[in-house]
Simulated scan of single mutants.
Amino acid sequence: MAITTTGHSKMKNFLKGLVKEGQYTLNGTKYKTPLYKVDLTGDVIKFYLYLDDKVTGNITRFELLDIDGQTFDDTPDSIDKKGISGLLVEFHYTLRKV
């Protein structure tokens, strides 16, 4: 028996409620940042972080933090961010029964 539409929606909403905020490592120091946007479409949930033009330096990691402040997901990176524009970071998940 397949998961129902209701069950699928509840799983996506659970994940949405589990992730509380973002975090990035800039020049070796961790900074928390609010979620910029969360998008739920079909089987896909996307979490976005946005760093404005005031954030400058070398970014080596992006993270999503859960409601307990623990790292839910992280992405190592190496970006030399200049102060001339913002940066949009996306964490993308697909929830489906296989």
Rank of each mutant, 00 (worst) to 15 (best):
V89K: 00
N13V: 09
L87W: 01
I79T: 01
T71Q: 04
L88T: 15
K32I: 08
T5V: 11
T29D: 09
H8K: 11
S78Q: 13
V38D: 01
F47K: 01
E63I: 04
G42S: 10
G86K: 05
L49F: 02
E90I: 12
D52P: 03
T56M: 05
G86V: 04
L18Q: 07
Y50V: 00
K12T: 06
G42T: 06
G69P: 02
V98H: 11
T6P: 01
S85R: 11
L64F: 09
S9H: 14
D77N: 13
T56Y: 02
D77V: 12
Y31L: 12
K20A: 08
D43H: 14
F72G: 05
M11F: 07
K12P: 01
Q23F: 01
D53Q: 06
I67D: 15
L88V: 09
N13D: 05
F47W: 13
L18P: 03
G42M: 10
L18G: 04
I84V: 05
T29Q: 12
D66E: 05
T5L: 14
E90K: 12
L26R: 10
K12F: 07
K30M: 08
G83S: 10
N27P: 10
S85H: 06
Y24W: 09
Q70D: 13
S9C: 05
D39M: 07
T25I: 06
G17Y: 06
R96E: 15
T29L: 12
L26H: 04
S9K: 07
I79Y: 10
L15P: 03
D52W: 06
I79C: 02
F14Q: 10
L64G: 00
K32W: 02
T94W: 11
L18C: 03
R61M: 12
K30I: 10
P34D: 04
T94A: 13
L95S: 03
L65Y: 03
L40N: 03
Y31K: 11
V19Q: 05
F14T: 15
R96V: 09
Q23M: 09
G69R: 10
M1L: 14
